[in-house]
Amino acid sequence: MNSAVIQKFFIDGPSGKLETILGEPGSTPQGIAIIAHPHPLHGGTMENKVVHTLFNTLLELQFITVKFNFRGVGQSEGAFDHGNGEIDDVIAVTQTIRSQFSNHVTDVPLLLAGFSFGGAIQLHVAEKLNPEFLILVAPSVVNLNAPAVPETTQCALIIQGDNDNIVLPDAVLAWAAPTSQPIVFIPGAEHFFHGKLAILKHVILRAFARKA
């Protein structure tokens, strides 16, 4: 983490500039990770603590790691588009970052990560971009009618708090049941994982340690 390089810039999105923060690891990248934040109309931004935890954890895992503000959030241009335009935002950011690193980073895996609204958005994006990895924290699968994890995804880590009263555990279980998608439950965690962010990070690190 100490040798990582962090930079802020703007990406040309479908409805204007998208405020973006990129972290480059200090060693050979293990992939490209794109993180989507919670619902824009409920205070969701890329500065959310869960998003911040995802960003730092994936950078520690040596991913080229990106978080950004959806259209109409922070300094990003445009206006909220009920999920449709936000899917296009993720695709635009992903394509730009892949292009930016294409000369010296080739054929690295794509990881899509998201929290709440952002998690459901990433499931829709996954249908289009076929990422190797997914990390979804309390994905709002009901409100956005999220599809299942694509069969082409090598590893999907779904993390849910059992005390979540915003994204209900039963709703996530109902979404997961048809495909027997495993879910990691963190006991005592509510929607924003107050007091549980270190455990959230540990769950992700442990999953990738097993993969390695």
Score class of each variant (00 low, 15 high):
residue 68 F to Y: 15
residue 147 P to R: 10
residue 125 V to Q: 01
residue 31 G to V: 11
residue 72 G to P: 07
residue 112 L to V: 00
residue 138 A to C: 07
residue 72 G to T: 04
residue 41 L to S: 13
residue 134 L to S: 11
residue 59 L to D: 09
residue 69 N to G: 09
residue 28 T to G: 12
residue 30 Q to R: 15
residue 37 H to S: 08
residue 146 A to C: 09
residue 43 G to M: 11
residue 84 N to Q: 14
residue 42 H to N: 14
residue 89 D to S: 01
residue 139 P to G: 07
residue 106 T to H: 14
residue 91 I to M: 10
residue 125 V to G: 04
residue 148 A to C: 02
residue 134 L to A: 02
residue 64 I to E: 09
residue 123 L to R: 00
residue 154 Q to H: 14
residue 62 Q to L: 07
residue 29 P to T: 06
residue 70 F to S: 06
residue 51 V to E: 03
residue 39 H to N: 15
residue 28 T to F: 13
residue 69 N to E: 06
residue 79 A to I: 12
residue 73 V to G: 01
residue 52 H to L: 12
residue 123 L to D: 02
residue 104 H to Q: 15
residue 91 I to R: 09
residue 104 H to V: 02
residue 107 D to H: 14
residue 88 D to C: 03
residue 19 E to Q: 14
residue 92 A to E: 09
residue 63 F to A: 08
residue 140 S to K: 08
residue 56 N to H: 14
residue 122 Q to L: 01
residue 97 I to A: 10
residue 154 Q to Y: 10
residue 21 I to S: 12
residue 101 F to H: 15
residue 19 E to R: 09
residue 100 Q to E: 13
residue 91 I to G: 06
residue 156 A to N: 05
residue 40 P to A: 08
residue 141 V to Y: 05
residue 144 L to I: 01
residue 40 P to E: 11
residue 38 P to C: 09
residue 36 A to Q: 03
residue 148 A to Q: 15
residue 146 A to F: 05
residue 35 I to N: 02
residue 50 V to T: 11
residue 14 P to M: 06
residue 145 N to D: 12
residue 119 G to W: 04
residue 132 E to F: 06
residue 154 Q to T: 14
residue 56 N to P: 00
residue 77 E to V: 02
residue 49 K to R: 13
residue 17 K to C: 00
residue 43 G to T: 11
residue 73 V to A: 08
residue 91 I to K: 13
residue 147 P to K: 07
residue 141 V to H: 05
residue 151 E to K: 15
residue 52 H to I: 02
residue 92 A to F: 13
residue 40 P to T: 06
residue 15 S to D: 13
residue 152 T to P: 09
residue 153 T to V: 15
residue 132 E to Q: 15
residue 50 V to W: 03
